[in-house]
Design a protein around this nucleic acid. Sequence first.
DNA 1: TGTTTATATAAATATATAATTATATATTAT
DNA 2: ATAATATATAATTATATATTTATATAAACA
Lengths: 109, 109
Amino acid sequence: MPSITAEPGIELKSKLFRGFSDGSRLSILKILVEGDTTVGEIVEQTGLSQPNVSSHLRCLSECGLALSRRDGRHIYYRASDPRVHKIIQLAEELLADSAKGIYECTRYE
Amino acid sequence: MPSITAEPGIELKSKLFRGFSDGSRLSILKILVEGDTTVGEIVEQTGLSQPNVSSHLRCLSECGLALSRRDGRHIYYRASDPRVHKIIQLAEELLADSAKGIYECTRYE
DNA sequence: TGTTTATATAAATATATAATTATATATTAT
DNA sequence: ATAATATATAATTATATATTTATATAAACA
């Protein structure tokens, strides 16, 4: 990523946003901000395959957006910080105001 | 994207976050939230190639995160909404805190 | 009008990532 | 110890996307 004045940590920040930038992960995050949830419940609620959910959860954990704890054979996941919820809410507000423009967005380069 | 209870608009929201989810775009956004900037200035400040910047600007515009206006042969871009800045700030805070948490961690349990 | 400057687009390539299928690990119960 | 349940990992495939190089458009100016 060639960049002259690239602020240090910019890659880290963009990685953080990747947690939110996929439909499956965002659905999962929206469940996690409501509270502790097992992988199985997430699988049920999203309709995604179990390995797929597991893979996304790993990504979210590594990015610092989710935390987990084991209880018996279940593993409970939750959002790591209330700001995860705030970020989603801000985006939803922003989107509500400019939804029309984004409808036509099909490219991401 | 197989999803049972996928909230309507979830794909749209995740698309919005894609604007932030790439290092080059995030660098550009951080410039845009400071105010009107020409493409040339962005190219200079980021060190990215002109076509690359142009391409990212198009994405940001289509996603509703940036607006533009032409003035002579220059085109000025800016963030579309103050919430763009807020979202970035929240993410930075979140990262700073989780980094701090790791830094301050002296116990290994 | 022709040239220079500023920005956008197109084509090609390389890389990243999401989802699937199959399998492994960890915990509890029998 | 074995089976059942819950979750994670690996390998594969398919698709998305970032970047480069080359070219096109649009405005200002000589």
